[in-house]
Design a protein around this nucleic acid. Structure first.
Lengths: 324, 324
DNA sequence: AAACTATGTGTAACCGGTTACTGAAAAGAT
DNA sequence: ATCTTTTCAGTAACCGGTTACACATAGTTT
């Protein structure tokens, strides 16, 4: 590996001069610059980022901690983050926490040791205090941990209201909700949104809300039970698309046609929604924009730029497809 | 940030001694070790990985270059790689190349500058020579670049044969194939496997092979055209699951029922296959095992262990679901 | 012409670890 | 009791960059 000293020797200048050329900083005469550039080209020299990181105390690297990249919600987010980071000269380390606090903590330690410049976090196990103690910029995405930490989310409550109201407008009389996990903020908000529309209906009871865990299999199971105990249900709002697909399966298993006998609407707008048959009506999150924003805000924070506001709530959009 | 010198001072020893305790290397008396450990605990010291990397010329970091994490085939692979790497003390940097040679080359440069210890590569644009010149271990996954580079793949030809034969065994008389891109090795192998079964059939002509690009929308389009021009087709083997789903859509649009009127089989075994309605019969790759193997082999290479063999071909498995 | 400023370049310290080398003390061998 | 070997710990060089500081020369002011 060729080092800055090799380049210096080859161009008959000092390492300081080479460094100046490299960083375009300080005075360098035109001829000297040319000599150095020639030497760099000739030796095919690339500065060693590790050495640079050590001195500068920053690594041009971001940490991305999310529950599980296999969860189809996250790849698009990850992609947007990686794209944006790359464009701004940063690289991203991928970490899967499985919602396990200990695992997340371990990743946090490692990222800190590797001098990452900042972290994007989708977690509901990490506490605010822990984040503060890292002493590096952190941006939360999809899940809110504290009002005081920069956060990129979506208007879950409004989206849930839109979804539920949409089913009502379609003439559905008994609308059930498959909710997400209790410890995930967006699941609670979506449930609140649903309640906002139906809680005053005379038919409504708590039994129309069933508990899912954002996964398909469980959703199929609980939805099937619901359809058996509540045959009057003719609309389901699932708190995410994966569970909505699960609910569609349950409907079929129960002999119901979607959308003829029952309407199903999801939330998220993952690729899966377009791939299902029938295609899923859903409340679409601007996933790519969310990831992009998260990366941009984080890098602004890292580079010490002023942040206009730290809490970003994006709007969601109803996309009507075939399941309603 | 507390450094090794702070610890040394606090424990009234030299930095060398602290380093020895840290790495459990060389002679350290029991009392000294205790003193140092106490100081480390008290100061909550964590060694700086960047400094360590600089000296050791290795970063305990892997690069993962894949076409696009949003392609549902890759998250499971990425997950397996990350899991395995983490277990063995490595961290992974995620790069999306979009099959763009220039972009991939740029990532390669950056990874090299960041001193990654090795790279896992899923690409068909990078050439063998480029890889050789990196002078660090590289393992290819999913796509073969050269016999001389450690590679983890699946027996595509055999899988394709199994898929096609399965449709025949189900009594299908005219089996078409939606193939993948010509520049992707596995697409060619799968096409060959298909040909192996059908090329000797008297009904067979080249027009039963239609060109897809591994994406759903295109597959739907070309499959629809096929069904219109070849109404006799009663079975489709798609070179990946995403295109199989696209073909199912085409079948529905064309008024055909799956599997009553036409059987459709995919390849890969991505999560999507289980989420579709009807669920997709497919040739399942052991995705997690592939990723795991890739990470293990790469790390063995990095750590200078002997590799028994460098070309790993995994078997695939027919998973019969509802689309056939 | 003297004083000052702008420009150009080199030396060496520094970032925070690791380790070769050195020397002293303790333990074992003869 | 002497010699050898093992154990223990410190000093300083090194990894490959960046930059404070020093110094020299050229260009401007007064």
């Amino acid at each position: 590996m060729v080092s800055i000293r090799d380049v210096a020797k080859h161009a008959s200048v000092s390492v300081a001069t080479v460094s100046r050329v490299l960083n375009d900083k300080g005075y360098v005469s035109v001829e000297t610059r040319k000599k150095v550039e020639a030497a760099i080209a000739e030796l095919n020299y690339r500065p060693n980022e590790v050495a640079r990181s050590l001195f500068k105390k920053q690594s041009k690297t971001l940490g991305l901690i999310l529950p599980d990249i296999m969860n189809p919600f996250f790849p698009e987010l990850a992609r947007a983050i990686e794209d944006t980071a790359a464009k701004l000269g940063y690289t991203v380390i991928l970490c899967n926490s499985d919602e396990d606090e200990e695992k997340a903590q371990r990743y946090l330690d490692i990222l800190l040791q590797k001098y990452v410049d900042g972290i994007i976090l989708a977690s509901n196990t990490i506490r605010e205090k822990t984040i503060r103690e890292l002493n590096i910029p952190v941006v939360c995405i999809d899940r809110e941990i504290s009002k005081d930490i920069p956060t990129i989310v979506v208007d879950n409550k409004k989206g849930a209201r839109t979804a539920t109201q949409f089913l009502k407008d379609k003439g559905r009389k008994r609308i059930a909700h498959i909710r997400g996990p209790f410890d995930v903020s967006n699941a609670n908000e979506r449930c609140e949104g649903y309640l906002g529309i139906v809680s005053s209906e005379d038919w409504f009871t708590e039994s129309y809300i069933i508990n899912g865990n954002y996964h398909m299999e469980t959703a199929t199971k609980v939805a099937l039970a619901l359809l058996q105990s509540h045959p009057e249900v003719d609309g389901i709002f699932a708190a995410n698309d994966t569970m909505a697909i699960g609910a569609m399966k349950a409907a079929y298993q129960h002999g119901l046609k979607v959308p003829e006998d029952i309407s199903i609407i999801g939330f998220d707008g993952i690729a899966l929604a377009k791939a299902s048959i029938p295609e899923l009506t859903t409340i679409e999150q601007p996933l790519y924009a969310l990831g992009q924003k998260a990366a941009k805000v984080l890098i602004q924070l890292i580079e010490g730029q002023e942040i206009e506001k730290s809490f970003h709530q994006f709007d969601v959009q109803l996309v009507e497809r075939e399941s309603t």
